[in-house]
Design a protein around this nucleic acid. Sequence first.
DNA 1: GCGCTGAACATAGCATCGCTATGCCATGTA
DNA 2: TACATGGCATAGCGATGCTATGTTCAGCGC
Lengths: 212, 212
Amino acid sequence: MVRPKDPAVRTQLIERAAVMLRAREPITLRSLVAGTGVSTMAVYTHFGGMDGLWQALRQEGFTRLGARLTTVPVSDDPVRDLTALAAAYLDNALTHPDLYRVMFDASVDLEDLPAADATLEHLVQAARRGRDAGRFRADVVPLDLAIQSWTIGHGLVSLVATGPLPRETLDHGPFLLRALFTACGDDPDRCRASVEQGWHRPAPDDERSAAR
Amino acid sequence: MVRPKDPAVRTQLIERAAVMLRAREPITLRSLVAGTGVSTMAVYTHFGGMDGLWQALRQEGFTRLGARLTTVPVSDDPVRDLTALAAAYLDNALTHPDLYRVMFDASVDLEDLPAADATLEHLVQAARRGRDAGRFRADVVPLDLAIQSWTIGHGLVSLVATGPLPRETLDHGPFLLRALFTACGDDPDRCRASVEQGWHRPAPDDERSAAR
DNA sequence: GCGCTGAACATAGCATCGCTATGCCATGTA
DNA sequence: TACATGGCATAGCGATGCTATGTTCAGCGC
C-alpha cells in the first residue's frame, strides 16, 4: 500500500449517488463522476464497478434506517415502542422511497444480510421487552414477533411505495399491528391505547430535515 | 391497416421473455429476438420498445396469478377459502419468482392497475362471503380485509423471494392470518381449523406442471 | 535525502445496449 | 391488376459498463 485510496472520494460518490437517486436522475457511471473531478476509474478502485456502488447504496440505506430507528425513544410501554418502531420504518421508507427500493429491489446479496439483521434487531429488542413485561405471552418468541411486525411494515410500504395501492393504505397499519399484538396475548384495550400512542407519536424530524 | 401484425409474434416474444426470465438470462432486445427469426423491429411494432415489453410481462404475470387464484375452489368455509387464496398467492409468487419481481419492481404503471385490481377482487369476494356468513363482524369492510390479507401475503413473499429472509419465514403465514381474521371477529377455534385447512390444502399442480 | 515501487487515478477504446432512420415487401383496396 | 400502407429487416447512432494502457505520487529501503 504505497498510495492509500482517499476515503473522501468514496463517501462523496455515495452521497452524490443518493442525491441523484432522490432527484430521480438515472445513475450512470459517467453521469455519477461528472462534475466531481474524479474519473470513472475511481468507481472501480472504490467499489469494483457499478454493482459495488449499488451494494454500497444498499448499505447506506440500511445505515440511515438504523439511525432513524435509533431515534425512537425507549419508554416504559414496549408495545407503544414497537408500534413506534414500525411507524418509523414506514416513515423512513416513504421519506427515502428510491433508497428503499434499492435496498430490496436487487437480488439478495449476502453482504447485505448483517445490515438487515441489525435493522431487525431493533424490533427484536422491543418484542423481548414486551414479553418480559408481561404484555405478550411467555411463549412468544421475540424474533418471530419481530419478523411478523416487519412483514406487516414491509408489505404495507412496498405495496404503497413501489406498488399499486394508494398512500391511505398505510392507515391499515394500526389495525394490523393490533391484530398481531393481541394475538400474542396483549390485552385488547391496553393494546389499542399503546398502538394509538406509538403510531401517532410525532416522528423526530431531525433526520428528515438533515437529509434534504 | 393493410398488413395486420401477426399476434403470434407477440405471444412468441412474451413467452420467450418469460422463459429467459426463469432461466435468469438477461433480457436484451437483441438476445430476445435472437433465434426467433424476427428482427429487433418487431419489438417496437408490437410493444413500442423494451418498456412496453416489460409492461406486457407484468400483465402476463397478473394473468397467470389470476388464473392460479381461479383454481382455488369455493367451499362453504369462506375463511378457509381466504386462507387458500393467500396460500395460492404465495405459491404462485415462489413458483414464478422472477415474474413476481417484475410485477412489483418497476415503477407503478397506471396501465397495470386494472390487472392488480382484478387480483385483489378474488380476495374481496372471499372476504365478503366471510362477512355475510357471519364469520366476520358486520362492520368489516371486505375491501379492507382483502388489502390487509394482501399486505401480509406480499410482505411475506417479498421478504423471502427478493429479500433477506429464508424460506421458512413463510411459516408465519397461518399465524398472521389467524391474528387478522380473529381481529375481524372470527371465533379463534373455528379460525384455527379453517386456516389450517386452507393453508395445507394441496395446491392444484396443473398450473405448475403446465408452466414448466 | 533520494530513488524505487506499486497502487491510485486519468485517458482512450471496446463490446453491447436501446433506439431510430431508411428501404423492401407483403397485403388489403379500388 | 396497380397502388398505397403498415409490418418487418438492415444499418447505424449515442450512450452504457468495463478494461487496457499510460501517468502520477505516496511510502519504504538505503
